[in-house]
Design a protein around this nucleic acid. Structure first.
Lengths: 164, 164
DNA sequence: TATTGTTATACTCTATAACTATA
DNA sequence: TATAGTTATAGAGTATAACAATA
């Protein structure tokens, strides 16, 4: 039973995920600059702009962030004039989070840089393998979060066509 | 520009990696039980047993853990009688970390459970896609950490043969 | 002088519980 | 009573700097 034979060494999902995620946060962190709360603030902003989940609780569930943390994140995004809180008229307990004009513009700018940073993190793969990896990861993640594969995760099909 | 068209929503590497890593740590955490420091303690133990990097600094570099944290991790693994510190005779500044007999046995047992937990986290993929994802992630991670693809990352080839 | 490991400190992220306002 | 959001607190995880031992 040699070192390369079994489930040993660096063939370990946790190690791989950790290494890649660290590379991602390092690369993306440099792109995001002074955005409040770095890549987590970015994810919140992106979900607000592109997603359909807009209550703080729905955002927290989608991003795997505790609802108590979401309060602070959104506080600082509001202070930075990137998003705003609106009381939901249908249920006055809920706050609908909407992007400001500035927030939408800033996000569009940041997303270009983030996409480049992502490709740097995956730089050792050729474009085809990169697309396959993105597709598989997106599939697993959407399945884990039980996101309807119809709406936002139709992106999976985009990755496929981009590969071909 | 629909939600599914551009680089939007859940087609985002950071979100995918975070979701999958969270699922991994949840599943694996249950398997590891009272192992000191959970999945990080496991990774240290696995690297000690299978890897060839054995100084604390080398372990820290491999696992992306700060060297000051590595001190505490190894302290507790030593207390649990899973590893031991030995002064390197060739360089008395360094400590060589070696597994105890109990550490080796415990790791072998845990690795079976961890492998199952990993497959649970990737459960939505069929076995072939799962192997492809493992192969690509391992490739990226080894490249990022500049691990010699010869020795431990020859596992990549194992994943390929397992796929075929 | 540089490196390995240790210790102390602080900062970020996260988790829990108590509180409010609405339903 | 139950839920959305807030606040306060404590716990992990991590990063920085200062220190001892060794090279």
């Amino acid at each position: 039973m040699s070192a390369a034979a079994g489930s040993v060494g660096h063939d370990e999902l946790g190690w791989c995920l950790g290494v890649v995620l660290r590379a991602y946060t390092d690369e993306v962190g440099a792109v995001l600059g002074d955005l409040p709360h770095g890549h987590r603030g970015f994810q919140v902003l992106a979900t607000v702009v592109h997603g359909d989940q807009r209550s703080q609780l729905a955002l927290a569930g989608m991003l795997g962030i505790d609802r108590t943390v979401m309060t602070y994140l959104i506080d600082d995004l509001v202070t930075a004039d990137l998003v705003a809180r609106q009381v939901d008229p249908a249920d006055r307990r809920q706050r609908r989070i909407v992007a400001t004009g500035r927030g939408t513009a800033v996000l569009a700018e940041l997303e270009r840089g983030v996409r480049k940073a992502e490709d740097v993190a995956l730089g050792s793969l050729d474009p085809q393998d990169r697309a396959v990896l993105r597709r598989l990861l997106t599939s697993v993640a959407c399945s884990l979060r039980q996101v309807a594969p119809a709406d936002p995760c139709a992106v999976v099909e985009d990755a496929l066509t981009a590969t071909a």
